[in-house]
Design a binder for these strands. Structure first.
Length: 582
RNA sequence: GGAGUGGUAGUUCAGUUGGUUAGAACGCUGGCCUGUCAAGCCAGAGGUCGCGGGUUCAAGUCCCGUCCGCUCCGCCA
């Protein structure tokens, strides 16, 4: 194809097709850059072929043309900046296949047209090489994925798209049933129950590259429909599963980027991640751990924000930056407080340790010299350090400090795009308490098995039960998560009831599943990886929109098709649906 | 639901303290040009300043509302 011609092709008669990228007209001779998805090649049209030249004179950017001619060397006019720069096609025949309107933005890399315009004319945006490349990569990776897992004895199996709405988890997209007016299917948030049923059905190892749907608000790394690499295995320990996934990740990173992933991947408990980095998906491209100063400070300071934190049984968390000299007063007054405020923190206190070991900054006056020395020793920091303090309820203090850590790391140039920090986060709590609903909710999902040594705490202290759940984190992005599942119907029923589901709820929502568990269920577990997020990482994209061909806006609309949209009354009548008055 | 940010020519942007005819680059149209490849040179066309209201002698600029894009919080088992 057009981008692949080289010096070795000289002398060939070729026919090429493509889009006019650019033309350069020099009176007698005319050059056309003809683009397809592989790149572009230069066509030369001369006046001594008057028909060719006359047609060439009329073409405009983005017209689709076909050219037949001879591949020739450019001689002394080689352009080494272009892959096909050694050769050009001396055109004997030229045909216009399709004319084009002037596009609303230029089709070339580095043109940052507005996102809304790009989405409206998505088919034009996709012609741009840098975007086009992402989809070739996408195809390569799905191909590689199928090979890897089928080579490991997985069956690629399909699950329904029209399925059953279940409580728990994300909001479902609903699909009304025409045959059963007033009843609805739901689009799957993930094929969770079906893949477990495959295990009960004896399929042993299941894989699917499947679309999932969640009706929740979007983010740069969250679209309402997304692609998941879904896996489930019977008779497997989580260590075996991790090993298999590590082999997969290593192969993908090796083949796509030529990067050797250090195996085994580091493992860290949820509790450790929260304590040390303030979040459950720490970016370990740099270390810079947080420090919990709550106990050291208790009763030993009058600093108002700290005292307030003690009053609400809060936490005083510190980000020690060993060399904080590059941060300015403006960063301390504006940047850090703004970032922390996004996570609800009311402020960021700070202290600098001077060359002589003396402290300056907002907290300096309120701490005794003895306490300062203890803190510096505990945080292992000395002269030149900058300490950022957030005092608030624990969840806020952690989230704010985690954010500050990333902002500081970024400013210090520690987030290299060619560094890859893989991490398994393990031992998540089984449940977290939902203050709004006044009940326990599953942190992963309700089919996750508690750790076997925590089973007896289900009745006595659900909040302390740890789950056999794990997330795979890469550079601070949650690439996927999974768990060893419950394979015992009584444990499953107990978990459902802990989540506040009545017997009747369990019967109507999950009856088939609890029944199935009773017919000989193998121990099993699995994981789901976000394929789009993985591509985003591998392609170096800033947004999921750059690796999804036809993505939605942050308000979940498609600007190209203008969906969602109203439907005819007739359609609604057939479905037995009446719209509520707004 | 909330916070931030942006919306000016086809595109990307500039537009001072509210003040005369809203500019630049790229693109587009026409012309010249036989070695360009981010081609070059000459000429030209192109504007509902997102939309609606308000303040003012005067609004792209100030105020209120609203729509849309993006980022984040909530939400996302």
């Amino acid at each position: 194809m057009n981008g692949n011609f080289r010096g070795s092709d000289v002398g060939q008669e070729v026919t090429v097709f493509g889009w006019v990228q650019a033309y350069r007209h020099h009176g007698g001779v005319m050059f056309i850059d003809l683009r397809d998805r592989t790149g572009f090649v230069q066509l030369r049209c001369e006046t001594d072929r008057p028909i060719v030249h006359a047609i060439a004179m009329t073409v405009r950017p983005e017209w689709v043309i076909a050219a037949r001619g001879t591949m020739i060397s450019r001689g002394s006019n080689i352009n080494s900046k272009i892959p096909t720069g050694e050769v050009e096609i001396e055109v004997h025949q030229l045909e216009i296949l399709s004319e084009a309107l002037t596009p609303p933005f230029e089709i070339k890399d580095g043109v940052n047209a507005n996102e809304d315009l790009r989405l409206q004319y998505r088919y034009l945006d996709l012609r741009r090489p840098e975007l086009n490349r992402n989809f070739a990569l996408r195809s390569q990776i799905t191909q590689m994925t199928r090979q890897y897992f089928t080579a490991h004895d997985f069956l690629e199996l399909e699950t329904p798209i029209l399925t059953k709405s279940t409580p728990e988890g994300a909001r479902d997209y609903l699909v009304p049933s025409r045959v059963h007016p007033g009843q609805f299917y739901a689009l799957p948030q993930s094929p969770q129950q079906f893949k477990q049923l495959f295990m009960m059905a004896g399929m042993d190892r299941y894989m699917q590259i499947c679309r999932c749907f969640r009706d929740e608000d979007l983010r740069a790394d969250r679209q309402p429909e997304f692609t998941q690499l879904d896996l489930e295995m019977s008779f497997v320990s989580r260590e075996q599963l991790w090993e298999l996934l590590e082999g997969y990740a290593a192969q993908v990173w090796q083949q796509v980027l030529g990067v050797q992933v250090q195996l085994p991947i580091q493992r860290m408990s949820y509790q450790h991640a929260m304590d040390k980095y303030g979040c459950d998906k720490p970016d370990l491209r740099f270390d810079m751990p947080l420090f919990d100063a709550t106990e050291l400070l208790r009763g030993r300071t009058e600093f108002r924000p700290f005292v307030s934190a003690f009053e609400i049984r809060g936490m005083i968390k510190v980000l020690p930056i060993p060399d904080g000299s590059t941060f300015t007063r403006k960063d301390l007054d504006t940047l850090f407080p703004q970032e922390a405020a996004q996570h609800g923190a009311k402020g960021v206190a700070w202290a600098r340790i001077g060359e002589d070991g003396s402290w300056s900054g907002t907290v300096a006056k309120s701490l005794s010299d003895e306490l300062k020395a203890e803190l510096a020793a505990a945080m292992k920091v000395g002269p030149g350090a900058l300490l950022l303090w957030v005092a608030d309820k624990p969840s806020t203090a952690n989230a704010a400090c985690a954010r500050l850590r990333l902002v500081a790391g970024d400013r210090l140039g520690l987030l290299g795009k060619t560094n890859w920090a893989f991490l398994w986060v393990t031992d998540f709590p089984m449940f977290e308490y939902d203050d709004e609903e006044k009940r326990w909710v599953a942190m992963h999902h309700p089919f996750t098995s508690p750790r076997l040594d925590h089973m007896d705490k289900l009745d006595t202290d659900p909040g302390s039960v740890l789950a056999q759940a794990y997330d795979l984190v890469v550079n601070g992005i949650e690439l996927g998560g999974g768990s060893i599942r419950i394979h015992n119907s009584e444990v499953q029923a107990k978990v459902f009831s802990l989540l506040g589901l009545s017997d009747e709820d369990i019967r109507s929502k999950f009856g088939f599943f609890v029944d199935a568990l009773k017919y000989g269920t193998p121990p099993h577990g699995g994981i789901a990886l976000g394929v789009d997020r993985m591509l985003m990482l591998l392609a170096g994209a800033e947004s999921l929109r750059d690796v999804i061909a036809f993505p939605k806006t942050s308000r979940a609309t498609c600007l190209m098709t203008e969906s969602p949209s109203a439907v005819d009354d007739k359609q609604l009548r057939e479905l037995g649906i009446a719209l509520a008055k707004p």
